[in-house]
C-alpha cells in the first residue's frame, strides 16, 4: 500500500551510499513530498474518530517554508507522537495548533487544521488565537511555572475562563493536581512558591495547569528533554494515564519514548510528513526507507 518516495528510491538503487550523501541530496528543493509521494493520508489506515485533521497545511516564517502540504488526522483521545530530526518542523507543527506563532511577526499559515466535531479551521485568519488557546493546552519543553504559588499556577487558567467561585476553583485545582500525580507531594504546601518544587515536579505542575481547563487537546513539546530518567518515567506514566481521556499530541526526539507511549507516530522530515501510521507499524515495519534510517539511528 505504501508508496516509497523518490528519495528513498534513490537510496534503494545505491544501497551502499553513505547516509551523508543522502542527506546532502535531500535539500529543501527536493523534499519527499515534492518529488511525487502521495499525500500521506491516502496511505494510512482510516481513523474512525478524528479529533483534528490537517488539510494541505503549510507554515512559513517570512520566506522560509517550514511545513508543506501536510495531510494527516489525529485520533480522538489517543496519543500521537511526532518524531524527526532537529529542524524537521515537528515543534513548529505543534505550535501551529494553539497559534503560538501568532505571538511573533512574519508567520504565514496555509491550508487548514480542522478541529472536530465542529470543523472549525484553527488557523483561519478570522479565528481568534485566544479562543483556540482556551480549547487546547500546551506543556512546554522546559518547565515554566509562574513565579506564584502552586495553587495560583493551576488556578490561573480557570480565572482566565471567568471562574470566580472559590470552592469550585479549589476543587478543580485538587483534581488537576491528582490527575498530574502531584497532589500527595503538594497538598500541604499549595500556597508555597512553585519554584520550590524540583524540575520534574514543576513539569507535572505545568501538566496540572494544562489539564485544569478541561482542554480538548493537550500539546506536549518535548516535555521530558530537560528532566532526569526518573522524572521522565513519571511524566510518561502520567501521559499514559491520560490516554482515552484527552487527545494528546507529543513532540519527542526520543524514539523509545514514542514507542512506549504513542498510539500513532508521525515522522517528519524537512517539513513533510514522510510517514504516519500506528506506532508499532512505524517502528517494526516502516513503509519508508527514510523512516527506517531515522529510527535505526543512521541519521538525525
Amino acid at each position: 500500500m505504501v508508496t516509497h518516495c523518490t528519495l528513498a528510491d534513490a537510496q534503494d538503487s545505491a544501497p551502499s551510499r553513505p547516509i551523508t550523501n543522502l542527506l546532502r541530496r535531500a535539500t529543501p528543493t527536493m523534499t519527499p513530498h515534492e518529488v511525487g509521494a502521495d499525500p500521506v493520508t491516502d496511505q494510512i489506515p482510516a481513523i474512525a474518530d478524528i479529533k483534528v485533521q490537517l488539510r494541505n497545511f503549510g507554515f512559513a516564517y517570512g520566506s522560509n517554508q517550514v511545513l508543506k502540504d501536510l495531510n494527516v488526522a489525529f485520533e480522538n483521545k489517543k496519543v500521537t507522537a511526532l518524531i524527526g530530526p532537529s529542524g524537521c518542523g515537528k515543534t513548529t507543527l505543534l505550535r501551529s495548533f494553539n497559534r503560538m506563532h501568532d505571538l511573533y511577526p512574519g508567520n504565514r499559515y496555509t491550508g487548514e487544521i480542522l478541529l472536530l466535531p465542529d470543523r472549525i479551521n484553527l488557523v483561519a485568519p478570522d479565528v481568534s488565537p485566544t479562543e483556540m488557546r482556551m480549547r487546547l493546552s500546551m506543556v512546554f519543553q522546559k518547565p515554566n511555572p509562574f513565579p506564584k504559588s502552586i495553587f495560583e499556577n493551576v488556578a490561573f487558567g480557570l480565572r482566565m475562563r471567568g471562574v470566580r467561585d472559590k470552592a469550585r476553583i479549589r476543587e478543580k485545582v485538587e483534581q488537576s493536581l491528582r490527575d498530574a500525580a502531584l497532589w500527595d507531594e503538594t497538598k500541604d504546601r499549595l500556597h508555597k512558591p512553585a519554584y520550590d518544587l524540583s524540575g520534574g515536579q514543576q513539569q507535572r505542575l505545568c501538566i496540572a495547569r494544562a489539564l485544569a481547563v478541561d482542554p480538548e487537546i493537550v500539546l506536549f513539546d518535548e516535555p521530558t528533554s530537560a528532566l532526569d530518567p526518573t522524572a521522565t518515567l513519571r511524566i510518561e506514566e502520567l501521559i499514559d494515564s491520560l490516554r482515552n481521556r484527552v487527545t494528546i499530541i507529543i513532540v519527542t526526539h526520543n524514539m523509545q519514548q514514542a514507542q512506549r507511549i504513542a498510539d500513532w507516530t508521525g515522522f517528519l522530515y524537512l517539513g513533510s510528513m514522510v510517514e504516519f501510521d500506528r506506532t508499532e507499524k512505524v517502528f517494526t515495519n516502516p513503509g519508508n526507507k527514510l523512516t527506517e534510517q531515522y529510527i535505526t539511528g543512521r541519521f538525525g
Partner: peptide, 27 residues
C-alpha cells in the same frame, strides 16, 4: 522576563492585557 513565561500565559488563553496585568507587571 523569559519568553517562556509569556508563552505559558498566552497558551492558557490569556489576552495580552491579562498577561501584562497578571504576570509581566507583578514580576
Amino acid at each position: 522576563i523569559p519568553r517562556t513565561i509569556r508563552e505559558a500565559s498566552y497558551a492558557l488563553g490569556a489576552t495580552k492585557w491579562e498577561t501584562v496585568w497578571h504576570h509581566l507587571l507583578p514580576y
